[in-house]
Amino acid sequence: MEHSPLEQFSIHPILELPPVAGMDLSFTNTSLFMTLSVLLIVGGLSLAMRRPSMVPGRAQSLAEMSYEFVGGMIRDITGPEGMKFFPYVFALFMFILVANLLGMFVLPFTVTSHIAVTLSLALTTICIVILTGLIRHGFGFFKLFAPSGLPIYMYLLITPIEIISFVARPITLSVRLFANMLAGHVMLKIFGSFVVALGGLGGIWAALAVLPLGAAFAITGLEFLVAFLQAYVFAILTVIYLNDVIHMNH
């Protein structure tokens, strides 16, 4: 099993803790990378804003750019009403982005390649969406499944479709991120082991190892793009779902 491309996803305890209610809550490698991500985000941003100045330096510009990027995204989609979700969307975007990027470096473990993590984040988003809808519109929230202005018989068709698409949201949201991260890392690992295997055969085979090596390089570049893109997609879909319940008149 040692060289299985799925090996990299296995979870090992680093600091074993006694089980709580029959559940193993040990501090594992995934816990470590979550902690690292949070430390990097908070530490990096705090360091960048340590001595904030009128004319920002490089680090401060980067911090402000990420702030304006997420803030602009929310303002463009929901208008000023959505800004109270800004800290959540910002945390979500940065956490996924940094976790994805950390998986690209020396000790590759990608928190977001685990469906447990992405599903938890997606369900958190959907819970916030449902709560916001219920608080803002009360029972009117359920109009989300029955858009007004249709002939009666159409509701028989539309309402189930709306309900299914709403229920599918947390699943698509989590599977999209998880599958992207999983597939990228599996491919990298497979091409990497090709290089090693071909190199080990020697002679003409070793020369052929250049091909999977080039592919691995190309995929690495692509993976950096995917790392950013998936964080962006997760964040923007969160904002779009929130917008649905903030402005309920479609």
């Binding site: 809550l25 902690t35 993590v117």
Partner: peptide, 15 residues
């Protein structure tokens, strides 16, 4: 459970 627990802790602190 472990993953979700630690995600809740770290993401909560991040938030």
């Amino acid at each position: 459970p472990g993953q979700i627990f630690w995600l809740a802790v770290t993401f909560g602190l991040l938030y």
